[in-house]
Amino acid sequence: MNRKKNWYDYLWIVSLTYLVLGFFNILFAWLGLLCFFIPLIISITKGNKAYCNRYCGRGQLFALAGGRFGLSRKKDIPGWMKSGWFRYGFLIFFFIMFFLMLWNTWLVFAGTKNLRTAVTLLWTFKVPWHWAYHGAFFSDGVAQFAFGFYSIMLTSTVLGFVTMLLFKPRSWCVYCPMGTMTQLICKAKHVTWSQK
């Protein structure tokens, strides 16, 4: 516990800033792609989960809120939530919703659909978000992607926050789709490495 703090122990500030920026200008949501590509690149090139283990600002945010701020009940997560079928099922569901979001973005790019300045929470609730939209660079599709991606980030924060309250602070990590995916990549990598 008395471990010296490293620079990456403060990445929760970046995550928090990201969420706040989305309230002012939705185009900042594009930066969230970093939380998508960095863990993938690390797991593919290094074959480990250093992103989860060290750099994930969202995990740190939940650890702080549930730990230092004492918001968490710190109860055990239910068995089904850590089971393989739920973790992989949630990953598949997340992927499907992600591709649907990409499809919607494409439709706006193509001009078939109009831009919708709303953030979709929990894949269901459309929350008006027009105040954070001040025009896109060259296509409405750019903004549509930002709204879609921010919806994903906010939804996962809400889910993670609820399970942080109910169970252990970082219970989001148990079913985090990025975590499950990078673990899968690591499994695949180490199987193929050991066969060489």
Binding site: K49, C52, G59, V174, Q183, C186
Partner: peptide, 9 residues
């Protein structure tokens, strides 16, 4: 799940 919470603590 290899999240690393244990490692940190």
């Amino acid at each position: 799940v290899a999240c690393g919470c244990c490692m940190k603590v």
